[in-house]
């Protein structure tokens, strides 16, 4: 794993194996808060922040659990760290911008159950990344998530003006767009190899 450069890790996490469009992680907020551009970018920011913190904590926890020989506690301790970080972000946003707090609504506490964050912590452990690598990986994953969310929000804002058949409206349309986005992201597959 040492042969992977930091740049490659970043590109890999954000474009080639985009967390949303290639790994299907974090689909719920991707479908839920991608209605408006403004909320999408801020949601991306919040998720990236939680990712960075929890990824660094996960690195520390993993080393600790290996040291005390209790790998079965991995999942439980990861989820506790993520839940507390989300709580922190929630209090911070509530204090700083009540309007944003209302706009994000139920999806803010639901960052806890955003699989992208737990997935990130598990993947970096599986891949055996060190501290710096984990940090870059989290940064890339966050950037990729925000990118996908913003792309989706832009498309959906345009679609509000389009005349679509009533059968297609709602989740089905969003999923169709996601499929097409996912197809186009396959074009990144050749990068970095």
């Amino acid at each position: 794993m040492k042969s992977e450069s930091l740049w490659y890790i970043f590109i890999n996490a954000s474009l080639i194996n985009n967390f949303v469009l290639a790994y299907f992680l974090g689909i719920c907020p991707f479908l839920g808060v991608s209605g408006k551009m403004g909320t999408a970018t801020k949601m991306g920011g919040a998720v990236t922040f939680v990712m960075l913190i929890s990824s660094m904590c996960a690195y520390g926890i993993h080393s600790l659990l290996i040291a005390i020989n209790a790998p079965f506690l991995q999942l439980i301790s990861y989820i506790v760290v993520i839940a507390s970080t989300v709580q922190l972000v929630e209090m911070f946003i509530k204090k700083m911008s009540p309007a944003l707090f209302r706009a994000l609504g139920i999806f803010l506490p639901l960052i806890t159950t955003n699989c992208a964050i737990l997935g990130l912590a598990l993947f970096q452990t599986n891949k055996g990344y060190g501290f710096v690598e984990s940090f870059v990986y989290a940064l890339g994953a966050g950037a990729g998530f925000t990118f996908a969310l913003v792309l989706m929000a832009g498309l959906r804002e345009q679609l509000d003006f389009a005349d679509v058949p009533s059968v297609v409206k709602g989740a089905a349309l969003t999923l169709l767009i996601a499929g097409i986005l996912s197809l186009s992201f396959m074009g990144f597959a050749g990068l970095g190899s």
Binding site: L21, A22, Y23, F24, S166, V167, V168, G170, A171, A172, L173, L175, L176, A178, G179, I180, S182, L183, M186
Partner: peptide, 25 residues
């Protein structure tokens, strides 16, 4: 091949949802 790739997942689920929406309507 596309069906076992990620994009296929989105398309299949979209198709099922469309099917149920049509049924509901």
């Amino acid at each position: 091949i596309i069906m076992i790739l990620p994009a296929g997942g989105f398309f299949t689920l979209a198709a099922w949802l469309l099917f149920f929406n049509a049924l509901k309507e």
